[in-house]
Design a protein around this nucleic acid. Structure first.
Lengths: 342, 342
DNA sequence: CTGAAAGCGCTTACAG
DNA sequence: CTGAAAGCGCTTACAG
């Protein structure tokens, strides 16, 4: 037999106080005497009362739950972001519910429909790679759902966003290679249909331009998903040309590791003959030998910032002073051995 | 001005049908005529009605939310487990809310208190390293909260659990080294206060015993957290002895990578002079050179199995036929170059 | 400082 | 096949 949960009514009977008084006492409502509060709280502990937060949310028609839509949670970048979100949300009394779109547009749309059911106070979203159109986001916006996007954000859609400056970060990373004396710098990049990878490529180009360096088209290797295996192929392609690069800027760390390994295996010294810089500062950058220089993309802080922005929006509640805000986090180039030429 | 959400009552007025009929029609209740169902559903779409699931949960006093307590979500093993949980839960119509204990016992206790508020239909838990006692779990159990533990599970507490056979897996991994001809096998292990790491060590011991091999205490290196850096120290300690190991079994992949690097740097050939096997089959095992042999710990499947077990328990609802169940997943030793001696 | 009462939006047992 | 009504547990505006 299931024991029934203790309710306010039970406490009310036990203590001979009105249900409303009990509720207020537990809330530390100002107009309740300290003695009463004490009695009520003691009894609540004694009977093992916990407020039914479903009933409470229902009555107040607001919840303390945040939804997060990510392409895939077991990608380190995303799990770090979620960790940051959870950290900040937890401090503020919110729960975090995760949804994986697995880069399926259909699934992403279905999730946004689920989110329209009042369960969530707000949503944090990283778009899937396959996302076409933004009607599903527009629908959420129309029903005033507080929203924050991060990393892969919809363009041409006014909303709160937390991003890093991919262009600027890549420009600086490439300039670092130039300062180290590299003249023939190659790039291993991601799909150019994705804004952030396009920006990283453009930052790379801009750095070369600023320093009047040329780059032949064979030195630009775009991959579909920046995987380790694609990185191996890209690096081999770079090696197949008569002129060899003396520096490589990669749009993530996996491909940078591939580049290091392929060049080393072919007798090149890293960093002296070819310097390599990656992007994301994954744990592997401190493990691979030589240690990999990489742009710290601030994933954890990105999560915290997104949660902060969202919760502010949830709690300011209607005073639509701010239409939307774009927070750009500062990145940092972490220089390690792979680009430390003498 | 906020538009008010559409409710059943609105549909009722629009269609001249009772609220109860609307509710049932949307539910595909058998006793409603197909024509009525059609009309109702059409109108619902037209007005953009979505059921208020808070109200529904409240009324039915059950939710479709699962809570997951993990030490830290940005550890690859846990993010993979969560991915598996989300995958299965999503298919079954459940949401997944995550909580990080960050290995703090205090935090873990606080989270279990949060979970007692009716918001969650069940919980999946991986204990924190610091957990002392199980009173907080007992409390959850007493209020009939469906629970499943995975990986680091409480001993002496009857509950559903999903685990792998750490002892057996380690025994086999060590025997693999023995079959490859290793005679002096060392071990880099985790804290022996944690059950799974103790079992891995014991599996290692058992394999040696089965083959009448001795091991000196200097060959057993326990670390606090199996980190890469601790692995480096442990490997150096192994090297500092006059007799060198010709095989190393490590309780995770990070320390295995450390071992490979330290031994290589000191002129040892891996696998020919020293063969190495890790545990967990992390992505890095396919990247490090030589590629690392490792035990696939089935993290994703563990998540799926845990979700399946939990949801079954939630939905069987009272028919307490099964007191508790322990699911043991089969692991698999993935042999790669690091242990492929000729 | 405390209480009585209404009502949030839904579901379901009961009635016809 | 459809409807009227009760009620889940809480919060809050109103009254005193």
């Amino acid at each position: 037999m299931n024991k029934r949960r203790i309710t306010l009514k039970d406490l009310s009977k036990e203590l001979g106080l009105a249900v409303s008084t009990i509720s207020r006492a537990l809330d530390d409502h100002p107009g309740i005497s300290p003695e009463t509060k004490e009695r009520v709280k003691q009894k609540a502990v004694e009977l093992g009362f916990t407020r039914n937060s479903i009933a409470s949310s229902f009555r107040k028609s607001k919840t303390l739950a945040i939804g997060v839509i990510v392409p895939q949670i077991d990608i380190h970048f995303h799990s770090l972001v979620i960790s940051g979100i959870e950290e900040y949300a937890h401090k503020s009394g919110y729960n975090v519910t995760i949804f994986q779109s697995r880069n399926s547009f259909k699934r992403e749309k279905r999730i946004t429909e689920t989110l329209q059911n009042n369960m969530f106070a707000g949503v944090i979203i990283c778009q899937g790679a396959e996302t076409r159109g933004i009607d599903h986001f527009k629908k959420l916006k129309k029903m005033k759902m507080p929203m924050v996007f991060y990393d892969r954000v919809p363009i041409g859609f006014e909303a709160n966003k937390v991003i890093i400056n991919d262009f600027e970060s890549s420009l600086r990373a490439t300039e670092h290679l130039i300062e180290k004396g590299c003249k023939n710098i190659a790039h291993i990049g991601g799909p150019q249909t994705t804004g952030i990878f396009k920006s990283r490529y453009e930052g790379f180009r801009k750095a070369l331009e600023n320093h009047h360096l040329e780059v032949s088209s064979e030195f630009i290797q775009f991959t579909k998903g920046l995987t380790y295996d694609e990185g191996l192929s890209a690096a081999r392609a770079l090696l197949s040309h008569p002129v060899k690069p003396d520096g490589i800027f990669c749009s993530n760390d996996y491909t940078a590791v591939s580049a290091i390994q392929v060049f080393q295996k072919n007798g090149f010294k890293v960093p002296d003959q070819v310097a390599v810089v990656g992007f994301s500062n994954y744990p592997i950058s401190k493990i691979i030998e030589p240690n990999l220089s990489s742009v710290n993309d601030r994933a954890f802080e990105m999560g915290q910032a997104a949660a902060k922005l969202l919760i502010r929006q949830i709690e300011e509640d209607g005073e639509d002073l701010i239409e939307s805000e774009i927070v750009t986090l500062k990145t940092e180039l972490i220089v390690r051995e792979s680009s430390s030429k003498k």
